[in-house]
Write a protein that binds this DNA or RNA. Structure first.
Lengths: 272, 272
DNA sequence: CCCCTATGTTTTATCGATAATCTCGTGGGC
DNA sequence: GCCCACGAGATTATCGATAAAACATAGGGG
């Protein structure tokens, strides 16, 4: 691990070790640089990250656990894709968990919580204004996790976090949509307001509503796969979008990664 | 893997590969042969199962994922123990998930479901009569998973299964309690009856009630740690029960496993 | 002309050995 | 007598190489 990690494709390249590679790859998936169905061969990843097979393998195991990657014995790993049915099921659970967690928050919330959420909200707003995709995602997740954390049950928070990771590929496109981001920021603000009041059900419902847009958007996207994708030039070279989304056995193709300086795709509304 | 796996300590030794080792170790934990806090060194496990370091390591990673084992970097793995607070939190989520899953079952349940549950119930009763501890556990879980499966959402079932695994060490002692088992069988029967009716809430509540006994029992057990433990002779040699349950840094002690032919501990009621 | 089989290539799975890290016991210094 | 530093032992982490499996292709037989 003290070994040379020659110039990674992403300039900052913070994070180190296995967690870092996971984060980087999740970004690739989330930003659409790695389309669903794309193969992730160990050798290619070894070259890309300058890591040993051991590390890469562990990374893939972890990503499989998180549900963003599918691994088949003796065949390899692919970016997982979800059918409309699966998406509904995942969101059904996620919505349920969210609602329950929100209902568990003692409602005139204590000032400390509101203060930290305010801070996170500010940070979130900043990243949105700066159009910092990675930052947007992280700040958004940080806000939600802090909110969930107020439910007082770390296991519930963990499971909820797991499901947030599961829906990660579905939230991809929404990071760059201006209207969706504005709505998202507004809703976060409303949540903080509701935390000052006493209406648990309103809070719970808002939190659930908050995630509808991305779900609907993703479902619409897979309904007609030829949706215009902005920076699709390099991802999964030569395959049509429908082929990429196809869930059949993956053909053996080399791993290909899009230009790191990806142009922000302009897509429909919705966020979470 | 084609390598010789010389006589394992458990006669049947079905299962092969990593999943098998996990199952065996989970049994050890569940039956109390491996007390909470016990160290699981790779070398010891390699000897015990005649497997390579690679396998054992993967096994420990998997068991950590399942929550039955705790791993600390450069230190090793120990059987995880749960505080009263954690137990309540885990059960809180598990109860919530259970209730929701039960409520999702369309209620005059279809005959096919009832038929398969009847079959599983018969099998369960058989294992109970035969006092087949391992079988009891497996048959019980099979019944519950089949029941949960009727909710129609595989992701919910999976999460629920994860939590069943998490509460596995808490359900340990209850496998051998005659009264508890009788109650358990009865409740399963009542569930099947309720599936024929239309009262979703009664079914959900029964399913939640069904797991209260083991929770209460475990909480009582950790409240006064000097509870009489039947086959404690070899597990964690020389340490007091309270020391075993202590959650501080584990002292380095050799792995010790109790006699495979464990005498069934007679303990209080409760089951799930 | 099509289907089945043999073989080469790609990719993953497994192993044994070495390096890094931690824990615990011991001895010297204050 | 107590505290800190050092070293021995134990245990995990990592690596490189080899084995095994699956896929893809090309050739032969029907």
């Amino acid at each position: 691990m003290t070994a040379d990690r020659q110039a990674g494709p992403v300039p900052p390249l913070r994070h180190e070790g296995i967690g870092g590679v996971v984060a980087l790859l999740e970004e690739d998936i989330m930003f659409g640089r790695l389309a669903p169905g794309a193969r992730l061969t160990e050798d290619a990843l070894m070259v890309r990250f300058g890591a040993s097979r051991h590390f890469i393998r562990q990374t893939l195991v972890e990503m499989e656990r998180r549900g963003v990657v599918q691994r088949e014995r003796n065949v390899g790993a692919t970016v997982r894709s979800y059918s409309a049915e699966e998406v509904r099921q995942i969101y059904e659970v996620r919505e349920m968990l969210t609602r329950q967690a929100m209902l568990m928050i003692a409602l005139p919330a204590e000032p400390g919580l509101i203060a930290s959420l305010d801070a996170l909200q500010d940070a979130y707003r900043d990243t949105v204004e700066k159009r910092d995709l990675r930052g947007i995602h992280e700040a958004n997740d940080a806000f939600h996790i802090a909110l969930f954390d107020a439910c007082g049950n770390p296991y519930l928070v963990r499971t909820l976090t797991d499901y947030m990771g599961l829906t990660l590929p579905m939230r991809a496109k929404n990071l760059a949509d201006a209207d969706g981001l504005r709505l998202s920021v507004d809703q976060h603000g409303t949540m903080i307001e509701l935390l000052r009041g006493r209406d648990r059900w309103a809070l719970a419902q808002l939190a659930v509503d908050h995630m509808q847009a991305s779900k609907a958007d993703y479902l619409a996207r897979i309904a007609n796969p030829e949706s215009r994708r902005a920076g699709s030039s390099l991802s999964s070279a030569g395959r049509t979008a429908s082929a990429v989304l196809a869930r059949g056995k993956p053909t053996r193709e080399p791993l290909r990664v899009a230009d790191p300086a990806m142009s922000a795709p302009e897509t429909s509304s919705g966020f979470d």
